[in-house]
Amino acid sequence: MLRKAPLAVSFAAAALFWTAANAQTELTVYTAFEAEDLKRYADTFNEDHPDITINWVRDSTGIVTAKLLAEKNNPQADVVWGLAATSLLLLKSEGMLEPYAPVGVELLDPKFVDNDDPPAWVGQDAWVASICFNTVEGEANGLTAPESWRDLLDPMYRGHVIMPNPNSSGTGFLDVSSWLQMFGEEEGWAFMDALHENIARYTHSGSKPCKLAAAGEIPIGVSFAFRGAKSKAAGAPLEIIVPSEGVGWDMEAGGIIAGTANLEAAQTLLDWAVTRKAMEMYNVGYAVIAMPGVAKPVEHFPEGLLDAMIDNDFEWAANNRAAILAEWQSRYDGKSEPKS
């Protein structure tokens, strides 16, 4: 690339010189943070570091991951901030992350930090599976609120449950991998076989089941707590249920893309991302954050979320992802007739 495009190099050099002269660094940050949070996050960061401009590139988890992988040989991003840890593990196994221990990383809950030293990525907040239950439609259909995952197998819920398809949704994969971890492989699949009988259909996105539950389209949506809280805040007659067996979770995490031209600024951003101030910033929307003892309860979030989070083995999930998805696809995809 360099040999091919001396012109591009000189342009890049000129650009570098220009930015240096202006003492203003631009960071291209790939993210799956909620769209509405982006401006607030950037503004808060700029309070402490006005010399670094964040250029957000935002999309849903799947698309950002696909984009990063597609750009593997020619990365466009400097930093990933706010992407599922599962995705960051994928990037790590492709050698795309620059290991770095942010200042103060030791204050975080270890399960929010990559095992390696220095870690390839650090987490910010958790994104926890939950069941969204529409109380109005539940009553209309004579359904009682489920309390556990296994409750969902009750025949009365037939056609009243909706969940994301793990093949197209990160949340869906999170659910499936957590059931396999909680129940063991054999029982996990048996559980899903039975659950499949009650599922109305599988959606492409993770937040859709909760929104459909909120709209009363399907009374029970397997989704995540954050989405449920949002819908509840919007006035939906929802109850957000944390199943008693425990819930799968993923986190929004960050890391530096190997080969970035702005390593220093990237490190500054990652350092800041684990500060208490940043944690309080995440806490506005997320009940569970990486730094213990900081979180304040978030309105509409269910109680006991933190305790219900299972000990998620991200590495196991990442290494078995392809096999799990293939198995899921052969069991439930394509051959199932839609139920109503």
């Binding site: 799947g62 698309i63 991951t65 696909a66 992988l69 597609a70 398809n165 093949n167 197209s168 949704s169 492409h204 998805l325």
Partner: peptide
């Protein structure tokens, strides 16, 4: 779409 966006299986 599912293969590319959902599974990154280009």
């Amino acid at each position: 779409y599912k293969q590319v966006i959902g599974q990154q299986n280009f």
